[in-house]
Amino acid sequence: MEPSNDSLRIDRRTALKWVLAASAALQLPAGVSLAQSTAKNVSGYGKDPNLLKIHQIGELWPLTLNEHQRTTATVLSDLIIPEDQGSPAASKVGVVDFIDEWISAPYPNNQNDKPVVVQGLAWLDQEAQRRFKNSFSALVEKELVAICDDLSAAKPAAQFEQAAKFFARYRSLTAGGYYTTPVGMKDLRYVGNVAMTTFDGPPVEVLKKLGLT
């Protein structure tokens, strides 16, 4: 769990937990230096990308998901983040495209997520066939909920252990993809990223609520 960690404001360095995790996980042969081994050839966007360009998904590396997989992913994403109070469902703001971009990227984290997502989507279809004799995307809401409740249970049953891990990862990708869009930020009631003439601190109603007046 690292809810506040990726914000530069809060602590940029803890955002790098994964770097540490990667170093801890490295099984280095004797005599090989850490620095050398982590400098693997990665053909991503490089060390000096254009930071101002508005990036289009699919232009940096080829995408992974086929039409059927995308249909399954759309149903799952929209189950995790459905339309609510006039705020659109996940797939409507490009979350499935984002997940496809994510699992297709050449970086180690993304490469680790790729089999998790691809196999997880396939498992959903197998499970849908097993329980309801249908593909996942063709299930009715009650059937979808039956499967997802099993996967999101606080303590999933032993036979769902792997699938539950996929579900948790897919949920975090969906949420991370959704809440970083203008629509998602608005839903969280984030109202910054606008130029102001002054910073006056929290409004009185906030201070009152916190007992700070």
Binding site: M1, E2, S4, D6, A15, S172, A175, G176, T180, M185
Partner: peptide, 11 residues
Amino acid sequence: MPSFGSTAGLA
């Protein structure tokens, strides 16, 4: 500003 890391973790 909500970031990928903060919102993915929060979910």
